[in-house]
């Protein structure tokens, strides 16, 4: 199975161990950071937290997932020092301060031999809702389209649905996948398939010679670079949010998470690190 899943299990395990140890060993001098929120961000922040602990002995970082809305609520109520929110703050959330630590972009992919070079947003919506069922309708060969969709609850699915203003019930898929890798293998093995995956993963696989093609969105090429400079439309910021001006340990953790020292961790989760 793809490495990502193992990573998630390991990080979940480490979070559990962390909770268990912090709960069972009372240490007076210990300082503790509590972070809660987005399940997209939790595995990454758990990894960052581990490195932060190594560099700052005596500090414990406790990460719990439960969705971006929990991140907002816990940061507001003070239950968590930092909330994890995998989207930009809404207008009614401007009382909170947000710090972007990475970007998440997804791209549509088709097989390399598919003659279709670009799709408009309405065409993508029509393909995913089953209104267009053959490639000929969008300038391709006369073959049925195999629609590859993500499983319920995946952050890429949420971002995709949100961007195209769809509900998961609207989509008529032919293949449902879990990990990015499975999506790439499915599209690489089927010349009439279309799917969407994290840009970081797709770019890497293309460089490894996997026969897939990244489609541009609204005229913007799908690349990690265009996600980083904010031009690519199908992307979102991954944020740490705090209630007030942060100081002390919280400030230190936020600065650490935004620094180059965690870029390898960000990339290991197929997110896009910030430009420096």
């Amino acid at each position: 199975m793809p490495r990502l899943s193992l990573n998630r299990y390991l990080s979940a395990l480490s979070v559990m161990l962390l909770v268990a140890t912090t709960a069972s060993i009372p240490q007076a001098a210990e300082r503790k950071l509590v972070l809660t929120g987005s399940s997209t961000l939790a595995p990454l922040v758990a990894e960052i937290g581990k490195r932060f602990e190594q560099e700052n002995p005596g500090v414990r970082v406790d990460v719990q997932s439960g969705g971006s809305s929990r991140g907002i609520a816990d940061a507001r109520s003070g239950l968590a020092d930092i909330g994890l929110v995998s989207r930009a703050l809404k207008p009614d959330e401007q009382d909170l301060k947000s710090f972007t630590i990475a970007l998440d972009g997804i791209t549509l992919i088709v097989h390399k031999d598919n003659p279709v070079q670009t799709l408009t947003d309405p065409q993508i919506v029509d393909i995913y809702t089953g209104k267009i069922t053959r490639w000929r309708a969008v300038g391709g060969a006369d073959r049925p389209i195999t629609v590859v969709n993500k499983a319920e609850g995946r952050s890429t699915l949420e971002l995709f649905l949100h961007h195209f203003q769809l509900k998961s019930g609207d989509i008529t898929a032919h293949v449902v996948i879990g990990e990015n890798q499975q999506g790439i293998k499915t599209v690489a093995g089927n010349t009439s398939a279309i799917g969407y995956v994290s840009i970081g993963t797709a770019e890497y696989e293309v460089s490894q010679g996997v026969p897939i093609k990244l489609l541009p969105m609204a005229g913007v090429d799908a690349s990690v670079e265009n996600v980083r400079n904010g031009r690519f439309p199908l992307a979102r910021p991954l944020n740490l949010v705090t209630k007030a001006e942060s100081e002390g340990l919280v400030r230190q953790f936020i600065d650490f998470s935004r620094s180059e020292r965690v870029h390898d961790l960000v990339e290991a989760q197929y997110f896009v690190p910030l430009a420096h």
Binding site: P144, T146, H174, V175, Q182, K185, G189, N190
Partner: peptide, 17 residues
């Protein structure tokens, strides 16, 4: 199955999976 069998079936009766 994913890399051999499914593409084989897909050529005959898409989507294969």
């Amino acid at each position: 199955g994913l890399t051999v069998l499914v593409p084989l079936i897909a050529r005959w009766q898409p989507p294969g999976a």
